[in-house]
C-alpha cells in the first residue's frame, strides 16, 4: 500500500526528511511516532500527495504521488494535524462538496450520516464550521476523510481536540477500516493509543525511521522486555538522558521554592 525508499525533503536549508524508508501493507495500522520536528507531518503530507519529496522513491496505493497526485488523493483519506476546512461552509455543505468532488454515489449520504451520528454531530449540520469548537472541527475532518472508504487512511494526530467518547469511536472506525483490508498510517503523541491500536510502530527521528516493528520487536531492539512504549521511545530517540537530566533539574529548582 505504501512503499517509500530513501525519501528526502528539503525546505530551503532545512532538511525535514533525510532518507526515510516506510512500507505499509493492507490491513496494517502503522503508528508513526517521533519527537516534535522529527518529520512525521512532512511524511504524511508527502504520502497524501500534498508535497513532493526532494528525492527518493515512493508508491502510494499503486501510484507515484509526484506523477499521479489526483489518483493518490482518490485513494487516500487524510486528516491533517489542524483540521483543513472551509470555515464559512456548514458541515452539511462541506460534506456535500467533498462527496461531489470525489464523485461518490448516493450511498455515501447514509455512511456520512452514520458517522456523523456516531460522532454526535447532529446539532451542528447547519452552523458555519468557523463557529464550531476544535473538537467538532476535527470530527468533521475525520468524517470527510473516511466517508469514501479509501484504501489508505493517513491520520496526523487525529485525536487532537477529541473527547474520550469520540476518541473511542475513532479508534473503532480505524480498527474496522484495517479489518476491511484498508491501510492506516497514524501519527500520535499519545503513546498508550499507539501501543493499543497499532499493529506496527515506526519511530522517526531527524527525518528517518530509527526503529520499526511490533511492540515486542521494539522491546527486543531496546533490550528491555517490560518497558512501555514511552520508555522505548525515549531510548530510541536518544532523549532518555536529556529527559532524566531535565527532570532532575526541575525538581531541584522546585525544592528551592519560588
Amino acid at each position: 500500500m505504501i512503499d517509500a525508499v530513501g525519501l528526502v525533503k528539503d525546505y530551503g536549508d532545512v532538511r525535514a526528511l533525510a532518507g526515510l524508508d516506510l512500507r505499509v501493507a493492507p490491513g496494517e495500522i502503522y503508528g508513526l511516532l517521533g519527537p516534535n520536528g522529527a518529520g512525521k507531518t512532512t511524511t504524511l503530507r508527502i504520502l497524501a500527495a500534498l508535497d513532493r519529496p526532494t528525492s527518493g522513491r515512493l508508491m502510494v496505493a499503486g501510484f507515484d504521488p509526484s506523477d499521479d497526485a489526483i489518483e493518490v488523493k482518490k485513494r487516500v483519506g487524510y486528516v491533517a494535524e489542524t483540521a483543513i476546512l472551509y470555515e464559512s461552509l456548514t458541515p452539511r455543505e462541506y460534506f456535500e462538496f467533498v462527496a461531489s468532488t470525489r464523485r461518490l454515489d448516493r450511498g455515501v449520504v447514509k455512511r456520512a450520516s452514520t458517522l456523523a451520528d456516531a460522532f454526535d454531530l447532529g446539532s451542528h449540520y447547519d452552523v458555519p464550521i468557523g463557529a464550531l469548537s476544535l473538537g467538532t472541527k476535527q470530527k468533521i475532518a475525520i468524517i470527510a476523510a473516511v466517508m469514501h472508504s479509501p484504501p489508505l487512511l493517513l491520520l496526523d494526530e487525529p485525536l487532537n481536540g477529541l473527547d474520550a467518547k469520540s476518541g473511542r469511536i475513532l479508534k473503532e472506525v480505524v480498527s474496522l477500516h484495517a479489518r476491511g483490508g484498508g491501510g492506516v498510517v497514524f501519527s500520535s503523541h499519545i503513546m498508550e493509543v499507539a501501543e493499543a491500536m497499532c499493529t506496527r510502530i515506526g519511530i522517526v527521528n531527524e527525518g528517518r525511521v530509527v526503529a520499526e516493528g511490533t511492540m515486542e520487536e521494539l522491546r527486543a531492539l531496546s533490550g528491555r522486555r517490560d518497558s512501555s512504549l514511552e520508555e522505548l521511545f525515549l531510548k530510541l530517540t536518544e532523549e532518555e538522558g536529556f529527559v532524566a537530566e531535565t527532570i532532575g533539574r526541575l525538581r531541584e529548582d522546585a525544592s528551592r521554592g519560588p
Binding site: 462527496a99 461531489s100 448516493r106 449520504v109 456520512a112 456523523a116 447532529g122 451542528h124 449540520y125
Partner: peptide
C-alpha cells in the same frame, strides 16, 4: 440546535 438528520445532494465535481 435540535438534532437533525444529515442529508445532502451529490453534484458533478
Amino acid at each position: 440546535a435540535a438534532k437533525t438528520g444529515l442529508k445532502f445532494r451529490i453534484h458533478g465535481p
